[in-house]
């Protein structure tokens, strides 16, 4: 079945990063959705999910922050699916869903804070949180993408990098690891599947879910540089020309520490860092500008020209 009715219209939670450093991810996600005829209804007056920082002050505040976003999408806007392209947002919404259905104390704190803040309390099960990968995979699917490819990514060697928050900890993703067709938390493949459908050649990349040190990208830069360099060099050793990303923290971490490794450690690498939504957009015939290629720090325009994607 190449077409399903699933996810044709979803609540859209871009999050703070997509309005700042990851503007290119926001632009390309919206452009891709439009091109594929999928409707994104942005969550009204959303707030930050707390990223990887607020949980260190108190995990229950983070649960509240995510619950407010889900409450607006479900109660005020009547959605039953919310899509978050950012791994941090996606992870936190999933974590909140898990905590609200497993931890009585989290539930009590969320009830209390929601009442004080004057909005309806989010209740576990009201909405399904999905990632941009689930969105394209289920709403369009590989067959659907193949039918729509205008400029194949053929000849482009890609290492698919998923990072931490898309798969870990596994207990907050009950729909994963459910056998054929489901996503795997140890060897994720949704991005591989989609890019392959768009013609790309995925390389055998062992560090798909390695950590880029994103949480300490500025507070412990030396560690982050080491971790990023390891990922980038492994990708290059696997023969990749491009690392495809689906997380703004990973994406900017890879871009930032690729430069830092060059300047501080004298280790220059050439692999390009591109969001998977940008790559799919290009394959659907959108121009590099439309998918925000010029907004990336990693300059991939030369490579894209070479591959006939501009």
């Amino acid at each position: 079945m190449s077409e399903t009715k699933k996810y044709k219209k979803v609540a859209y939670y871009p999050g703070c990063a997509l309005e700042g450093t990851a503007h290119a991810y926001n632009r390309s996600t919206k452009a891709l959705g439009k091109e594929l005829g999928l409707e994104l209804d942005e969550v009204d007056n959303w707030n930050c999910c707390g990223a990887m920082e607020v949980k260190n002050i108190d995990p229950k505040i983070q649960t509240y922050l995510s619950s407010r976003v889900m409450s607006i999408a479900a109660n005020d806007m009547g959605h039953d699916v919310v899509m978050a392209p950012c791994n941090g947002c996606y992870h936190n919404l999933k974590k909140a869903e898990y905590d609200l259905s497993h931890d009585e104390k989290s539930k009590q704190v969320v009830e209390k804070l929601s009442a004080k803040a004057g909005h309806e309390t989010y209740k576990a099960g009201q909405i399904e949180t999905i990632h941009a990968l689930d969105w394209i995979k289920d709403a369009i699917g590989e067959e659907g993408l193949k039918e729509r490819v205008k400029k194949s990514l053929s000849g482009m060697k890609i290492a698919n990098y998923y990072g931490c928050m898309y798969t870990r900890p596994r207990h907050i993703f009950p729909e994963k690891d459910q056998g054929p067709g489901s996503e795997s938390t140890t060897q994720p493949h949704f991005m591989d599947d989609l890019l392959e459908a768009a013609g790309a050649e995925n390389v055998d990349f062992p560090l798909k879910t390695a950590c880029c040190g994103g949480a300490h990208t500025l507070s412990d830069s030396d560690t982050s540089t080491k971790l990023v360099l390891n990922i980038i060099e492994a990708a290059e050793a696997s023969g990749a020309e491009v690392i495809a990303t689906e997380c703004p923290t990973c994406h900017s971490g890879l871009e930032m520490h690729q430069i830092r490794a060059e300047k501080v450690l004298g280790r220059k690498t050439n692999v390009k860092i591109v969001y998977f939504t940008q790559l799919l957009g290009l394959a659907m015939g959108l121009s590099p500008r439309k998918v925000g290629i010029q907004e990336n720090i990693s300059d991939s325009i030369g490579l894209l020209k070479e591959k006939g994607l501009t």
Binding site: G50, V54, N56, I57, I61, L218, S219, D220
Partner: peptide, 14 residues
């Protein structure tokens, strides 16, 4: 730690 300072700066804004 610098990590705690970062968490505080970030959380204060949120």
């Amino acid at each position: 730690s610098s990590s705690t300072v970062f968490d505080e700066v970030f959380s204060e804004q949120v």
